[in-house]
């Protein structure tokens, strides 16, 4: 059992076991199926290859992802900017609270009829649906994050005469970033849902459109193929986000003592660069005693309780 928890291969095997088993189960139970609702997996995979390798990639996948990226980017920028304004101005925040809470309480799919009426069914309208769907959770988390910045940090910034602008960029935003990241991650999921939903009404392309069209033309294999693609897109987008967050928020997990041994021992890119600089400077000065840092990345860097 230690194999599955202690080794890298073991962990990968452990995570792949269930998906492989389910695919196998799907394969054998559907193998001789004649039901139109449950086509053989072989047909689905054949359809997957036919539709998505790569005919519909430029016509459907790319437009979907483009609209999603634009909508999500707008939501992130607007959510953080709005979060800063409301978070830094408690009175404005209190005045706006009933409205933001109401808008957040509206289930995002209800935005669709509203947007269709006001903005129509073009790309812009779809981008708006995605942005409007995911902006609230980002906004409210950003407000929370900004409001809970440690007052000692703000005192520190004020005592060193940091300008308001610099205080916001260098102190408030980074301090609020873990909470903002939580909102962005939830917003990502909402955005993906809104991307699909926006393509199910008045659309001529996109992932959601293709799945709905396949279902309506009784092409169940194609429908399943589309669902698989959507699932994979969601998986990869989330994975990308988590990996980026892990890297950018390394300090946060470090500060909370959540880095595991491997991570703590691995020097950051910035640190490696710093060590290279030190080494180069030392080499040009030709002072042997200063060359030592060249090899210091080989040593574990976890020095939590060491006192100078």
């Amino acid at each position: 059992m230690r194999f599955f928890t202690r080794t890298r291969t073991g962990r990968v095997v452990l995570q792949l076991a269930l998906p492989v088993f389910l695919l196998w189960l799907w394969w054998v139970t559907s193998e001789n199926s004649t039901s139109y609702a449950y086509p053989p997996l072989s047909d689905v995979l054949e359809q997957l290859r036919e539709d998505w390798m790569f005919d519909q990639v430029p016509t459907d996948l790319v437009p979907s992802l483009a609209r999603f990226s634009a909508g999500y980017a707008i939501a992130v920028v607007a959510g953080i900017a709005g979060g800063l304004v409301l978070g830094l101005m408690p009175r404005v925040q209190r005045a706006a609270q009933p409205v933001t809470e109401f808008l957040r309480a509206i289930p995002p799919p209800l935005l669709l009829p509203f947007v269709i009426v006001t903005l129509g069914i073009g790309n812009g309208a779809k981008v708006a649906v995605i942005a409007l769907g995911s902006v609230w959770v980002i906004l409210l988390n950003a407000v929370d994050g900004v409001r809970s910045v440690d007052p000692v940090l703000l005192d520190t910034a004020a005592s060193f005469q940091l300008s308001r602008r610099r205080t916001i960029w260098r102190v408030v935003l980074p301090a609020a970033s873990p909470q903002i990241a939580v909102g962005m991650r939830t917003g990502l999921a909402v955005g993906l849902i809104m991307m699909i939903i926006s393509e199910m009404q008045g659309s001529t392309n996109g992932l959601g459109y293709q799945v709905l069209a396949a279902q309506r033309s009784f092409d169940t294999a194609s429908m399943f193929a589309g669902i698989i693609v959507i699932g994979l897109v969601g998986l990869l987008v989330n994975l990308g986000f988590v990996l980026a967050e892990k890297r950018i928020m390394r300090w946060y997990r470090g500060a909370r003592g959540l880095l595991d041994e491997n991570e703590a021992a691995r020097p950051t890119a910035r640190r490696r660069a710093a060590e290279r600089r030190t080494a180069n400077a030392a080499a040009t000065r030709d002072t042997p005693s200063r060359v030592a840092p060249v090899h210091s990345h080989l040593r574990p860097t976890r020095i939590r309780h060491q006192e100078a």
Binding site: D155, A175, S177
Partner: peptide
């Protein structure tokens, strides 16, 4: 009325006054 340029502070709670995202 605000911290003068010629004054610097050291707070009791270093873990809250240092910025953990900066080296």
């Amino acid at each position: 009325t605000r911290t003068p340029r010629s004054m610097a502070l050291v707070f009791q709670d270093y873990s809250r006054s240092l910025l953990p995202w900066l080296d």
